[in-house]
């Protein structure tokens, strides 16, 4: 399976993402500079964390207007899996690929620590290797991770089981303890915690690896004969 890791000016988790895929997971990946918007030949697209365009205007706002995001929208429409982590999640929200928006953390602090999460929905291609309600620990590192959506949107997210991860101890004020959501089609996931920073025991947690394994398992079942 071949992953594209999109690199924007200001991305800083791109190499972590690349390492998680190529070393921890053992699959292929390329770092793709955002201006080289040719995503054909990739089986999945990863939007890494960081501070694209210095978080100017709003986190992810400028990156969401780039040509590569238009191409990512087309790929998403075709069913290609897209994962956005941290700033990648913010870009997906700004691009309208996922509903809602990010506000500054409730305490106005940039927070960088391990956070306990609950897997709310393990019936997705990003979470099938987890058990439902599994308690996991992933690092967070953000100043604007306070997820917001209105009540109608929240009801829709709940009704469609689009909330994939919730915080066990909400660190940032997110609506309904939301840490990660998926689109209705089930192929675009955005999350603030960093699974790519938790793929080996030596990193403090390997709980993030199951997310990437879920993606690979789904792809093999769908596209590789005889598996």
């Amino acid at each position: 399976m071949k992953f594209a890791v999109i690199v924007f000016p200001g991305s800083n988790c791109d190499r972590d993402m690349y390492h998680a895929v190529t070393s921890s997971l053992g699959e292929e990946a390329d770092l793709v500079w955002y201006e080289e918007a040719n995503l054909s030949g990739y089986d999945a697209i990863l939007l890494p964390g960081g501070f694209s365009y210095g978080d100017y205007l709003r986190s992810g706002a400028i990156a969401s207007t780039s040509h590569v995001v238009t191409e990512i929208k087309q790929k998403a429409d075709m069913g290609i899996p897209v994962l956005g982590v941290c700033n990648g999640f913010q870009i997906l929200l700004e691009a309208g690929l996922l509903p809602g928006a990010m506000l500054r953390n409730k305490q106005l602090k940039f927070m960088c620590h391990q956070e306990k999460l609950v897997v709310e929905n393990n019936q997705t291609r990003f979470s099938s290797a987890y058990t439902t309600k599994e308690a996991i620990s992933l690092p967070i590192a953000h100043g604007e991770g306070n997820y917001y959506c209105d009540e109608g949107e929240l009801a829709e997210l709940e009704a469609n089981n689009q909330i994939v991860f919730r915080y066990a101890n909400n660190p940032n004020g997110s609506v309904a303890d939301i840490a990660g959501i998926i689109n209705q089609q089930g192929n675009v996931l955005g999350m603030m915690p960093h699974p790519e920073r938790a793929t080996e025991a030596v990193l403090g947690s390997s709980d993030g690896l199951k997310l990437f394994k879920s993606v690979v398992n789904h792809w093999r079942e769908a596209y590789v004969a005889g598996v």
Binding site: L57, R58, I62, T65, E94, G100, A101, C149
Partner: peptide, 9 residues
């Protein structure tokens, strides 16, 4: 609508 404001918030 396209860039300067985020209509969600």
């Amino acid at each position: 609508a396209k860039l300067l404001a985020n209509p969600v918030i």
